[in-house]
Amino acid sequence: MAFMLPGKPVSSRFSFTFAAMSYDLKAISQYATDTIQNEITALQRMSGFVNEDFIQSVILMHEAKGRVVITGIGKSAIIAQKIVATMNSTGTPALFMHAADAIHGDLGMIQPDDVVIIISKSGESPEIKALLPFVRNFGNKVIAICGNKDAYLATHADYFINTTVDSEACPNNLAPTTSTTAQLVMGDALAVSLLRLKGFTDRDFAKFHPGGALGKRLYLKVSDLSSRNAKPVVPATASLREIIIVISGNFLGATAVQENDQLIGIITDGDLRRMLEKNEQPAQLQARDICSMHPKTIEESELAIQALEMMRTHDITQLIVTDQGRYAGMVHLHDLIREGLI
């Protein structure tokens, strides 16, 4: 049995037998490559379809007082759900309505100020042709995302966004593959255009993504971490014994050093080791003789992810936390690891 090593290019014809079947590994690699190239070629055409209808569609949704209702059938319905999720997470209220369920009661979710997007490759599906007149009768504006400019959907919608592809990646030109990728890209283009018109920021994004590591990167503050820690500090005149007791007792591997209630430096475990290597009589030293002056600090109101970036930049594991310049505590790399930011 011959195996191809993972990650290695297939440069010649290989085969191996598994469960009494023989596989042409070179052919499988070519199938995948052809699929990717087919979709890349189709997507390169998409920018040419950003026309007046696309621009007016973006303006319509940006100015709408209602929501964006997105519908489709089959694979297009799955794409519609993804576009809804993207819009909701980027500041454009949206909801999904399955085209087949719409004419059996779900039309009731469409409100007078809503904009309706209908997604279909052919634009001729029976469910779509049945649905469109009802939506138009409600008086809602309709945007068609369609792969056939002459289709019923394209010609009866208020705005037509073209997602025509030359062929599917499927060798039979049947299974929706390249066409659904084109729909997805146009949906992303709409969502990002709206995001930018709204001036949607990373802090806005955080409001809708409070869960998991992504949410924490966007909303977790330095103070959320430092407030859980001790606040180790010694005076500038502290002896070596006093310094060791404070560092050992607070489990942060460091202590701040203050003089006249002002922060002047930091002493870390590493500073102590280096000091012991250089001095034969360390007991005579005070905190001011050992500390690193002008320590790296971060305001407690900053995002925790910025603390992580500072630690990486300066190759350190602790940061002094300040409140309007005054010593307020300390944050450690372990705090960031514990929160899943690394």
Rank of each mutant, 00 (worst) to 15 (best):
E127A: 02
V116H: 12
E127N: 01
C146T: 14
V135S: 05
S122W: 12
L107C: 05
G105S: 12
M109W: 06
C146W: 10
I119V: 15
G123F: 11
H104L: 04
H104F: 08
S122G: 05
S122K: 07
K129L: 11
L132H: 09
I118P: 07
G105M: 07
I117N: 02
G147T: 06
G139R: 11
V142R: 06
K141G: 02
A144R: 11
S122F: 07
G123C: 08
D106L: 02
G108F: 13
A144Q: 10
P126N: 03
K141V: 02
K141M: 04
G147E: 07
V142S: 08
A130R: 14
S125A: 15
E127I: 00
M109D: 01
A144S: 15
K121P: 01
E127S: 02
K129E: 11
P133T: 05
A100T: 15
N137Y: 06
G147A: 07
V115T: 14
F138N: 10
V116M: 12
H104W: 11
R136W: 04
G108L: 12
G147M: 03
H104Q: 09
V142L: 05
D114E: 05
F138S: 08
G147R: 08
E127T: 00
L132D: 06
C146F: 11
I143E: 09
E124P: 03
H104K: 11
G139D: 08
R136P: 01
A100M: 09
R136A: 05
V135T: 03
V116R: 09
G108P: 08
I128S: 07
L131M: 14
A130E: 15
M109T: 15
S125E: 15
L132R: 10
A144H: 10
